[in-house]
Design a protein around this nucleic acid. Sequence first.
RNA 1: GCCCCCAUCGUCCAGCGGCCUAGGACUCCGCCCUUUCAAGGCGGCAACGGGGAUUCGAAUUCCCCUGGGGGCACCA
Length: 482
Amino acid sequence: MSVRVRIAPSPTGYLHVGTARTALFNYLFARHNDGTFILRSDDTDQARSTDEFKQDILDHMRWLGLEWDEGIEVGGPHGSYRQSDRYDRYREVAMQLVESGDAYFSFVTSEQLDDFKKKAREAGTSPAYDGSLEPARSEVPRAMLDNGGPVIRFKVPRPGTTRFTDMVRGEVEFDHAQVDDFVIMRSDNTPTYHLASTVDDVDYGITHVIRGEDILSSTPKHILLAKAMGAEPAEYAHLSLLMGPDGKKLSKRHGDTAMSAYRDAGHLPEALVNYLGLLGWSPGEDETVVDLATMIARFDGTGISKNPAIFDATKLEWMNGVYIREMDAAEFAETSRPWVEADLGRSLTDDERSTLEALMPLIQERTKLLSEVPDQARFLFEAPTEYDDKAWSKVMATDEGPVALDGAVEALNGVDDWSTEAIDAALRGMLEEHELSARKGFQPIRVALTGTTVSPPLFESIEVLGRDETLSRIAVARARLA
RNA sequence: GCCCCCAUCGUCCAGCGGCCUAGGACUCCGCCCUUUCAAGGCGGCAACGGGGAUUCGAAUUCCCCUGGGGGCACCA
């Protein structure tokens, strides 16, 4: 049977990095097995679901390259892939389960339930509701009135046990004494997650459910439900959760949990995919930088780590730098340009584009995040309007500052062939003439041109800037020095 | 409180009874390269949570403890 997996986010928030990782694992498993990757929207929580969240999830899934074969927007043989469009189906299943005796209308009040759980806790027994509080049939109408309507609960067989083999945890066993007679239909006649999710998994022919460990203990419910529907339960794989730097569940307080934040910070999707893929999974060898194709080739469902993984933003950044350096120069220039233009607040002219491209390889190797490009490239398009205070006092307002600037003007005026090599030779000649160290002699020029002591290599920058602009900026700085 | 899962450097992984004086990567610290900053090269710090048991031999198997995580909703 061909593999069918799904990612089923709830549009109640932006695409979370943890969800993205789960999606990636599903995607890898599908591709590895020539299976089908499905994206479905679990939007039964109408109150908290929004179109904006849904769109954010879709956008970032695509941005990461996690294209789905069936599901939202791309369609497939199972309708809209939105749970909110399938309420009739869930009701149908719920009624069938009531008829077959696998589920029942429940009239317990929340007060009764609270009391039940409280007593269980005091007694040290299982707090799982076992249906024992249901009123006698003759009392139902009144209770129903008090209650605002019944819910439908699944009747968990007791005593009993559900065992299954989890692809990452191995044999797992749950005593039904620990499993609630859980609600499958709310009193407002809408389905709960357990019902909707399981019905969809069954109807869509999902073969492997790869999801977060947070639902491991709900798995018996889903298996019981599937069996009651007469279906063969899927295989399950429960991934350990992503943690923040303090070992607690990754949350906004640790930094960014929304995928969009990483995109906005200038991460490359390839780097994110690589990093997320190796967070809790090993491709087999001591490898760290692994491309998608390799991951797909190796991802057979084994080698998935059982322990929680801490999300290390620093390592992600390092990896992003690796991917940036691996890009070819033209591609990097193209990818970076929007960042530069956003910073400038305007589009680049054709000439400026050439200028940018000329210096790009040098910028590329000192960039970890795309968002760092504007700081490095700005001097190409705008003369410094101010100078970094420390830079000015440290290298400019010194004995050597004026000497270096004056020397540079003279040396540069003598350059006929405006090339990096000629500029290099001329400025080094200037160094000798004035007996300046490279540091003393070159840093003032750098500050004059860029406003700071940190910038791309000097000679190339001068070449790209052009003679007029270079001399003009030096003159401005020199005047300020006088 | 009850149930479940987990446990190797600070972090992510490798290790599946002898190849382990425990390997790789990030971080950090040196050194080299160097006009700044990076990148790169070389080197270094750093771990099998504790206790039993099995075995000729355990990071690797079993048990207990401890620690961490998750769940216990008419949320997903």
